[in-house]
Structure formats: structure tokens, C-alpha cells
Simulated scan of single mutants.
Amino acid sequence: MLIPNEKRILTLLARNGRLSKRDIERLSGLGWATVVKLVSRLEKEGYIQRGGILERPSIGGVKPESYILSKRHPLAVGIDVEYTTTRIYLTNLMLEELASRQVSTPKLGTLESAVDFLENLYRSFGKETLLPHEAIAGIGVGFPTWLVPSGFDTFGLIEAELGKRLQVSVRVDNNVRAYTSFKHASDKANNNFILVTIRSGIGVGIVLNGKLYRGAEGKAGEISHFVIVRKGGELCRCGKRGCLETVVNQNVLVEEYLKRKGLRDTDTPMQKVFTEASGGDCDAQEILDGAARNLAYALSALILSININRVYLAGHFGASGQVFCQKVEEYLNELVYPHSSISIQYEDIVDSAFPLGAAMMILQDFCDFSIK
């Protein structure tokens, strides 16, 4: 187990790249003797390695030796389980993609079937990559809340059972919170924001004062189960009817568009709906306007509660994504405080951010990714 000052040094190297001992002394505030001792120990244990001579003078005119993070220690596995697709990544403290694999997510009706799936996926991935199990610091899993009936209770149960079977540290959280962690680590400007993803469901991650906010029971931001349709709504995965997720997700929007057009093309991407709306298609415009209004209605309650004015909306919308965000923004500014200015920024979903964010749940024991 690392001591806090060792973790501080690894964090500095993760943020700054190559550093000399004098750089580490200056940036960490640690004494010279402490830096020399800890750098030597971290190098011996394989956490860092020498990165070559820095082309700048040091004390006495001697060019200093630099240090960088090791690419092979510690290693973590991140798994993103989505309703249709599962991705598994091997990564390090630099969050590099060292190996990856994508498979279809089977129907997981029970906790046991979910753990069986994750165990088999991890073992087969290890065989493919020739990865020694003992080299893995742990496994982080991003998991949809309602993929199996036990909902939020699933996370702790998977951690315990999968960890027992594999004899390795396992941490499980909602997959969108994993994505949000990666977003926060890579975005050095913002310490307060809401991230909304629209895939086959709607996910929300919240960062408050530089920290990922989960709430008292890990349920913070679950606007996907905010009831929009009061009567006659579709049955949701959570067991209620008319939840936001039943009227706003990429599958529902595409299905509604195809229905209006009398088409049956099951391979139509959601991006086409946005493209057609931008081109003046009235059906597509009406569908997206309704989606923007419903999303804004659910988001307004969250924004009014925690007073955040920056929202990132991520999806596979293509070049027209920001136009949709502007519509959501218009509705939101009608619903929240007078004279408020809510900013909604679109970004394409980066699929790798889900498993890499999951791996960060393990790697945070070695590096503080929240430090800007």
C-alpha cells in the first residue's frame, strides 16, 4: 500500500509527465531527502522509471535525470457493461489503452448470470492478452443500474462475489459515473458540472467542487427514472411507467422516426434523425423537440437543487448535436431561475471513456485524478 507522499509523487508525474527530483521537490513541497528516498523506492517497486536527461540546466550546471510513470505497473482492467455492448480495457496510470475487446452483452436476468458473464469475460481477456493475473491491481466495472432486477443493490453484490471468485480487488459503480470520472480527469477547467449521456438509456454524472457526487445511497442524478408520462406510459426497466428513459433514448427516437416514415430499417443510426431534422424534416424536428422538452423538464429539477449551470450532453448525434443542445438549453432557461444562464455543450460520446473511467476506480488508490 502506498503512503500519501508516494501517491502525491505519482499524481504529479501523471499530471506533468517527465519530472526531475528537483521538480518533484518544488511541486510537492516535500524536503529533498524525502524526495530522494521516495523516488528511489518507487523506482525499485516498479511504479516509475527513468525518462532520460532533461535538456535544461540544473543546480551546478548538470542536466538532471527525469522520471516518468511506468507503463506496466500498476495495471487495471476496466469493464463497461451497456445494455447491448460490453467493452473491456487494460490500462495504466496514464490511462493508455494497452489492450481492449468488445462483445455483445447477453441477457442478464439474475445477479449470478451477471457475475458469470464478467468472470468469463475477464478470464478470456486475460488469455488473449497473455496477461498474468497477479499483475492486475484490480477490476473496475461500470454497470447499468437496472440491467438486473436488484438495481442499486447489484453493485455491492457484484463486488463481493466477483472479487471472491477472482481473488482480486473489484469496484463497481454506475457506468455513467465512470464516464464522468474520466471526463473530469481530462478536463482541467471545470470542477462543477453535470454530464448527461444518451445511449440505449439516459445516464447522469455529477461533479461538485471537484468531486464525483453519488448521494447518500449512490442514487444521485437518476433523472432517467423521473416520471414524464403520468398516464399510459411505457413500462420502464425500474418497474415504473412513463420514466424519462422510456421516451428519450437513442432506440426510442429512431423507432419513432421510422414509424412516422413507415420504414423498418433496424440499422438506422440515431445520427440520421438529427441530420434529417437539420435538413428541415418536420417529423424529425418534432421528435427531437419533444425529446428536448422532456429532457429539460427532468434536468430542471436537478439544476434547481444543486445550482449548476454547466451541462455536457454526450451522444452519437453527429454534427447536429449542438443544435439539439440549444433547444434543450432554451427549454431549461424557461424552467429554472429568472435570469439564469444554463450552458449546455454537446460532445460525441467517447466509447473508450466508459471502461477507462471504470479502471480509474482501481487506479485512484495510486493517483489522485481529481487534482487539477
Rank of each mutant, 00 (worst) to 15 (best):
E97K: 13
S40G: 15
E119M: 12
V141K: 03
V254P: 07
I59W: 10
L2R: 12
D281L: 13
C325Q: 04
L30W: 01
V254R: 09
E134T: 09
P4C: 01
G51L: 00
F274N: 10
V81P: 00
L304T: 07
F193R: 03
I362D: 04
G203L: 11
E161K: 14
E330N: 09
R123F: 08
N249W: 12
L42N: 01
A137Q: 09
V196Q: 09
T105G: 09
K327E: 15
G205E: 10
V247P: 10
P132Q: 06
L295S: 06
G156Q: 06
A99D: 15
V148F: 06
A135G: 06
D267P: 04
S124E: 15
V311M: 04
C243Q: 05
G280T: 11
A189L: 14
L12T: 00
Y312L: 09
Y83P: 05
L244T: 03
N92C: 12
A358S: 07
Y257L: 14
S124D: 15
E217Y: 14
G51F: 10
G151R: 01
N16W: 02
T85R: 12
K259V: 05
G29W: 07
V176N: 03
Y331L: 02
I362K: 04
T91L: 13
R123H: 09
E330L: 10
K219L: 13
V141F: 04
D187N: 14
L38S: 01
A14S: 15
C236V: 07
V62R: 14
E55N: 14
E96V: 07
P57C: 06
E234A: 15
P132V: 02
D348W: 04
T266G: 05
G318P: 05
H73W: 13
I9R: 01
D187I: 00
E286W: 13
S200A: 12
E329V: 11
S320G: 06
W32Y: 07
V81S: 03
F226N: 11
E161V: 01
S66E: 01
S186M: 14
V36Q: 08
T11G: 01
L244F: 14
T110R: 05
A185L: 08
S100R: 13
